[in-house]
Nucleic acid binder design. Structure first.
Lengths: 201, 201
DNA sequence: TATATAGGCGAACAATTGTTCGCTCATGAG
DNA sequence: CTCATGAGCGAACAATTGTTCGCCTATATA
């Protein structure tokens, strides 16, 4: 798949996401800065042959996209330095209905530190990317370059990141710590049997 | 919304679900057993005016459906006698990506009997409708007309439905009990903050 | 130097799709 | 009875959309 082909697929998927139906050949031409519909058809044919796109014969606006839902990124090991949601950190995608938007992402839970809040090792947590978190809410935090899922607790004694497991100690936030809120917990998803698979990035 | 209008919307949504793009006016006519495209246009205009359907102007196959994802039913109080997934039991729908199919449904967890398996009161559990369940798997069962989510345990001493909470006792299955497997647990979803809402049936 | 491959142009053409315009029929409210 | 409304028919028409054909330009590779 060449760069140009990626751009085509991207354009088409975005169009479908934004409009709810696929673009016509002329709309693709316009969107990609082409002046001939034939160029677009050529491209679509090649993409279809390689299985990168599905079309339903000669039907108007019959491109199916890979799927009619939005792909929410699953972040893996977060690298210190690079913005959290940048491509380097993306491990894969999970597709959900349209109503999940761009500022959401998944994190796969690593470890049992939140097990008393019924969040287990291997669960997917859906987070909304934000800097604001309210007291006592669960969220993902970056502390000194490491990502952790904890309850945010603010007291007169200071700010703590609370685990939900007696085997773990609360993390007390010091002034010198490099700390940031990554997102608040929106949803917990546990796939037991052939549930959501991650699709490669 | 008249019965006829419901049928139209249904047809269109199913078409979109099955094909990934919306039907043309002539396809709707064929599907609804009409011979004039004008009849369909009339209907669409009325549906659009009432906000029951969204169209993007005069664009080919530009019906947006309510959303490009499949609606998985959420079952409420199950009535003894009627088939479990019949309309009478459906409390609402949750929309997920396309890859969830017709034999899946949600049940909203009522009570804490599975809390040690990290399934809490209010969680949504996605189940696959089946009669076969393996030993030690979690599933939904109908016992004497009541629905319950438990671990299925088969031993030489008999069949038990095991809770995951010390406050609850295992249910021992007697020959005289009216028992059936409703489905196996596929996924657990917990919406914390503006997650999936149920949309009315 | 040939040659394959990706990408592109423009114009004519065919097929699909949406729109419009009368006209009909049945039903329930006033 | 009259009138509004939901539902439908057919045919002509306009607009959109997909297809085809020949030809062009790079670039990389054998």
């Amino acid at each position: 798949m060449t760069e140009r082909q990626k751009m085509f697929v991207n354009f088409i998927e975005n169009f479908i996401r934004d409009n709810g139906y696929s673009p016509s050949i002329r709309e693709i031409a316009k969107g990609m800065g082409l002046s001939s519909t034939a160029s677009v058809k050529n491209m679509l044919d090649r993409l279809t042959e390689n299985g990168l796109l599905k079309r339903s014969g000669s039907i108007a606006r019959g491109i199916e996209g890979s799927r009619m839902s939005s792909a929410v990124p699953v972040l893996g090991r977060i690298k210190a330095g690079v913005p959290v949601t940048s491509e380097e950190n993306i491990e894969g995608y999970i597709r959900l209905g349209k109503e999940i938007y761009d500022d959401h992402f998944f994190l796969r839970v690593d470890g049992d530190s939140m097990k008393d809040k019924a969040i287990l090792d291997g669960d997917f947590v859906l987070l909304r990317h934000t800097n604001i978190i309210h007291n006592n809410k669960i969220g993902a935090f970056c502390i000194n370059g490491e990502i952790t899922l904890k309850t945010f607790l603010k007291t007169p004694e200071g700010v703590f990141l609370m685990p939900a497991n007696d085997d773990f100690a609360p993390i007390s936030l010091a002034e010198t710590d490099d700390f940031s809120v990554i997102g608040v917990l929106v949803m917990v998803i546990r796939a037991l049997e052939g549930g959501y698979d991650i699709e490669p990035a």
